[in-house]
Design a protein around this nucleic acid. Structure first.
Length: 817
DNA sequence: TTCAAACGGCTTTTT
DNA sequence: GCCGTTTGAA
């Protein structure tokens, strides 16, 4: 690596005219410019929602590179998601071209994996370690809870996992926990044992869980100062986005990296901050400069250990830090900002900060109250269609909800209404059983020490290997002092029946063959295409695919398709990573969440939780399920700081919208199969009522029309024809009415389950333009045209009372007249 | 060991 | 209303 050119510019450049940065500063307001150009040891950018922080961050990086203050390799930028990292990389490249190569722009987790893979052998791991996602670690914990009979003390796998995760986020480990815990309490003692065993199992499996990726990197830096110094010397400019959502471990990691190199031994073990202003002491080597960006109003991850104090006390942690405030919003209309400001203003312990814009008021927020969640979903679908007809692209619209389970009703209606959508996050591809199985096969090859993975594939497909045999293998391995995986090579010594011996020997042979493909013993490096090849060997020769194909369970057909998809992913990986290894592939899969997949151009409406929505923006936003017990969520109500965090979450949701914001709720909601009455969220009342134009207000639903089935008469106020204003009833001078509980029980059931769980199938119903049809909900109408092919044929229908709709012919509740 | 049927519990948000 | 777990039978 070439020596860096020494920084030329220190401190804020003079105001003189033409500097190389001029184009980078074009179009920025004064605080934004300052955030780009300030030079010093520490900079905090307090960036309100939509204030252009990504732009500022990318230009700051570009400016550092362009002025030769830093080489790309000296820059470490941390983002919250891989997607954000990719976008930032692109934008920097757009500003200064390919010279941007070599920067580290990644999430905390990805950066730590890179470091750990490099340094693993320093402390008892090897570089082919496995990354356990929460499902993997829960499976392991589950076994340990059982072994220790910890359930007798009320521990569940989930509760143990949560507690361990919390401890790790505070950088506690099993030993330090045992030192401080009250071990005379038997429950505490059992927990301490499970924790210790869990950690030992991870170490034996050569594996890290998500929290370890951060925590062990911190440990590595603290235990091996010479290793830490390598990275301290390397990264001269560290930038952290979404700083309000960092937890203690991440905070500690940043602190380790921003110490002056070679300074260890002085303030080491104390855990104290030793950030000396760059005057530098004797050593002369300066600490890296640190830039953090955040907004305490958008802190929504306290539940996973994010500590808002990391940002509120930044100035204390880094004395002399410069603070820049970005309050001008470039995203939303003033109406949206007024609503958001009003809501967040109800959080008392915050620094007052008001977003403003100069784009004008824009249109009113549209409110809607459905009878049921399906009714609400239908409103969203109708509105999406109306906006689409008016020229808004589907990809510019998003629907948010608090809990993942709320997506189902929306999905059902969207499918029926033929609205193209995609769910971000949600049930993840990589969490499907068959995909996890396939990944376990790959991991068994890459990291044979990973017993969990080997155990997982032991009887998949069914080989007649049950609990008894599994235990025999484990016992044999323990006796011989070899790994579980190696024990498979000695089937005849296990003391099991000949049939089972044969099955084990076969599995062993398949694993060995795939190993030779992907990690040749000859020592030459396998080409990236070998991952595809190896996966095919594993899936075919193990009999996994055959078993699925032979099965008569209709779902298994879909599983085969999913596995085909995974094979396609490996091919894609090989194309994108000409140097990629099996290990690289596994890393990518472990760390890239589904929310990251980048097919935004697909022209679909995005459905996601409010959490996933952070950092995104759309022309039109639908915030659904704005009900008590949902937002704020019931569980958060009793947690300290819970309701406030929920309010911030709602605030984040509102501020994603550029032009059109919709808030909706339902009067009844089915949960756990039970239908119950829902109340409007308290947050709704915090929005000044004149900002909301109610198409159908909570009052409408309660007082009149409540007994009349809208399934029969369609929806009066919806559809394309209505301009939006003046149609629905507004609240006059009243506050948004408080919910009334006394609702006739009768109409609760009436509207709750209009959507049958079973998908209906019209077979190959033939429709042509001009046909008259009858729809269960919308009544009669005339077919305008037919688009699409086969099962995806869509009828565009103009209903007499409900207006224009698109219907998926195969499943819509329609009949030809 | 595997399968089907009944049962109970539960869901906040995620790298 | 779904999931995983438990139970009993083959």
């Amino acid at each position: 690596m070439p020596d860096p050119i020494k920084p030329v510019i220190v401190g804020v450049p003079g105001p003189s005219g033409s500097r190389p940065d001029d184009d980078l500063l074009a179009g920025l307001n004064e605080p934004q410019r300052e955030a780009v150009t300030y030079r010093g040891p520490a900079l905090l950018i307090v960036a309100g929602a939509g204030s252009g922080k990504t732009s500022v961050l990318t230009r700051r990086i570009a400016s550092l590179l362009r002025s030769r203050e830093a080489w790309p390799s000296q820059i470490l930028a941390i983002t919250f998601t891989n997607k954000a990292a990719g976008e930032m990389r692109e934008r920097v490249r757009g500003l200064i071209g390919d010279t941007a190569q070599g920067m580290w722009i990644s999430t905390f987790h990805s950066a730590c994996v890179r470091i750990l893979r490099r340094e693993a052998d320093q402390f008892g791991f090897t570089k082919n370690f496995t990354i356990y996602d929460s499902g993997d670690s829960r499976a392991l914990i589950k076994r340990l809870v059982k072994e220790h009979e910890a359930d007798a003390f009320g521990f569940t796998p989930a509760s143990v996992q949560g507690r361990i995760s919390k401890l790790k986020n505070e950088l506690a480990d099993a030993e330090s926990f045992a030192r401080t815990a009250n071990l005379s309490d038997p429950a505490e003692r059992v927990f301490a044992e499970v924790f210790a065993d869990y950690q030992r199992a991870l170490q034996r499996a050569n594996a890290f869980d998500f929290d370890d990726l951060i925590g062990q990197t911190v440990y590595l830096f603290r235990a091996f100062p010479h290793v830490a110094d390598v990275y301290r010397r390397r990264f001269r400019h560290i930038l952290v986005d979404e700083y309000q959502d960092t937890n203690h471990a991440q905070y500690a990691l940043i602190h380790e990296l921003t110490r002056p190199p070679g300074s260890d031994g002085q303030a080491h073990d104390s855990g104290m901050m030793i950030f000396d202003a760059p005057s530098g002491g004797a050593g002369g080597e300066e600490a890296a400069s640190l830039t953090v960006v955040g907004d305490s109003d958008q802190s929504i991850y306290a539940f996973r250990g994010a500590d808002i104090r990391n940002i509120t006390e930044f100035e204390r942690d880094y004395p002399g830090a410069k603070v820049v405030l970005l309050e001008q919003n470039y995203r939303s209309t003033q109406t949206i900002l007024d609503a958001a400001n009003a809501v967040i203003g109800n959080n008392f312990d915050r620094k007052d900060k008001k977003l403003w814009t100069d784009v004008g008021p824009g249109s009113a927020i549209i409110g809607f109250t459905g009878y049921s969640q399906h009714d609400e979903a239908q409103f969203v679908a109708d509105e999406v269609e109306a906006l689409h007809r008016a020229g808004t692209a589907y990809s510019e619209m998003a629907v948010f909800y608090r809990t993942n389970s709320q997506s189902r009703a929306l999905e059902e209606i969207f499918i029926r209404s033929a609205v193209p959508y995609k769910i971000m996050g949600g049930t993840k591809f990589y969490e499907r059983a068959e995909i996890k199985d396939a990944m376990a096969y790959l991991i068994a090859v890459a990291n044979p020490a990973d017993e969990l993975s080997v155990r997982r594939i032991l009887n998949r497909p069914r080989r007649g290997i049950g609990d008894v045999t599994e235990t025999s293998i484990a016992r044999y391995a323990a006796e011989e002092g070899i790994t579980f995986r190696d024990a498979l090579a000695n089937a005849s010594a296990l003391g099991v029946g000949p049939k089972i011996q044969q099955a084990i020997a076969h599995l062993d042979a398949v694993l060995a063959e795939a190993t030779e493909v992907m990690l040749p013993a000859s020592g030459e490096v396998a080409p990236p295409t070998s991952v595809t090849e190896g996966l095919n060997v594993l899936l075919n020769k193990s009999g996994y695919l055959d078993a699925l194909r032979r099965s008569k369970d209709p779902q298994d057909e879909a599983r085969v398709e999913n596995l085909d998809e995974l094979v396609a992913v490996t091919r894609e990986f090989a194309r994108n990573n000409p140097e990629g290894t099996l290990l690289d592939f596994l890393t990518e899969v472990a760390l890239v969440s589904d929310a990251d997949d980048l097919d935004d151009s697909s022209g679909s409406v995005s459905l996601m939780t409010m959490h996933t929505a952070k950092g995104l923006e759309f022309d039109a936003v639908f915030v659904t399920g704005v009900e008590e017990d949902l937002i704020p969520h019931r569980i958060s109500a009793n947690e300290p700081g819970g309701p406030q965090e929920e309010r911030r979450l709602f605030y984040v949701a509102l501020t994603r919208a550029r032009k059109k914001l919709h808030v909706s709720l339902a009067m009844t909601r089915a949960q756990f199969g039970e239908v119950s009455a829902a109340l409007p969220s308290r947050f709704l009342q915090e929005i000044p009522h004149e900002l909301i134009d109610w198409r159908q207000s909570p009052g409408d639903v309660n007082s009149r029309g409540g007994t009349q089935s809208r399934a029969l008469n369609g929806r009066p106020g919806s559809g394309a024809g209505r301009g939006g204003f003046g149609g629905g009833s507004r609240y006059g001078d009243d506050l948004v009415p408080l919910p009334r509980r006394e609702k006739p029980a009768g109409d609760i059931t009436k509207f709750a389950n209009r959507i049958p769980a079973k998908v209906r199938d019209n077979g190959d119903l033939e429709l042509a333009p001009g046909d008259r049809i009858r729809h269960d909900d919308f009544g009669e109408g005339r077919v305008d045209m037919i688009t699409g092919e086969g099962a995806k044929r869509v009828a565009h229908v103009r209903f007499d009372s409900a207006g224009p709709k698109k219907l998926l012919i195969k499943i819509a509740p329609i009949a030809k007249l």
